[in-house]
């Protein structure tokens, strides 16, 4: 079932007109070189900023949904981990929550391994700890679609895997999930579907074996496989 359908997402100079459909229960990872347009695409799908186009989640036009409804349908994790105000982790998650529930926040804190620092100020947490709190904020309403900009950035190896598990669990619950990652091995191991973006357009879309073929890796990233690692192509 198509859960999210974005059409004509475009930003002149950054991203050519792009159509994407995400199915319920599917984890799609978006990869591409720096400046390829990953964040622009995600922001455009979330209808943030100046990008043109339209995005529907469960048939609802994201751009016209008001604050209460939009957060039910869409969870968005921005790439920035900066916080301006000295809020506690618990309060930060509550700010993203539509139906206030302390129990739900406590459970979410446990889920992202933050039970011990729920009452600490987020501006005094490490970047990785803060990243998990911000992810928790995006997940707290159990939205039907998740657009996550680098959910595993800044995380240690264990938490990269745990966050991918969390994201996969979200997909199993029925959400459509699109997340950007830089680690191609991680992408290959965990995604059912991979989108490769380069120069502001999608150049490959499919299961890891085809989307991350040697030709595409060389053309878009300029790298090639060598044994267990990577070399410059």
């Amino acid at each position: 079932m198509i859960r999210l359908s974005a059409t004509g997402i475009a930003l002149p100079g950054r991203l050519g007109p792009t159509d994407i459909a995400l199915r319920a229960g599917e984890l799609t990872l978006l990869v591409g070189p720096n400046g390829a347009g990953k964040t622009t695409l995600l922001r455009g799908m979330a209808r943030i900023g100046a990008a043109r186009g339209a995005c529907r989640i469960d048939g609802f036009d994201v751009g016209t949904l008001g604050p209460a409804n939009r957060a039910r349908h869409l969870g968005y994790l921005p790439a920035s981990r900066d916080m301006d105000w000295p809020l506690t982790a618990r309060d930060l998650i509550a700010l993203g929550q539509i139906d206030p529930s302390k129990e739900a926040i406590a459970a979410m804190l446990e889920r992202v391994g933050a039970g011990a620092f729920g009452d600490r100020r987020v501006d005094r947490l490490s970047t990785g700890e803060r990243a998990r709190i911000l992810l928790a904020r995006a997940l707290i309403n159990a939205p039907s679609a998740l657009l996550l900009d680098e959910p595993v950035a800044n995380l240690d190896p264990l938490w990269q895997l745990r966050v991918l598990d969390i994201v996969k669990a979200e997909a199993r619950r029925g959400a459509a999930v699109l997340a950007t990652v830089h680690d191609l091995d991680l992408a290959r191991a965990h995604a059912a579907r991979i989108l490769v973006i380069a120069g502001g357009r999608i150049v490959a879309d499919g299961p890891p074996e085809t989307a991350l073929s040697d030709r595409i890796l060389a053309e878009t990233f300029g790298i090639a496989r060598s044994g267990d690692g990577w070399v410059i192509a």
């Binding site: 900023g49 957060a71 869409l74 920035s80 301006d84 904020r137």
Partner: peptide
Amino acid sequence: GEEAAASMG
């Protein structure tokens, strides 16, 4: 953050 607030509508 501006992006998160905008994504919430």
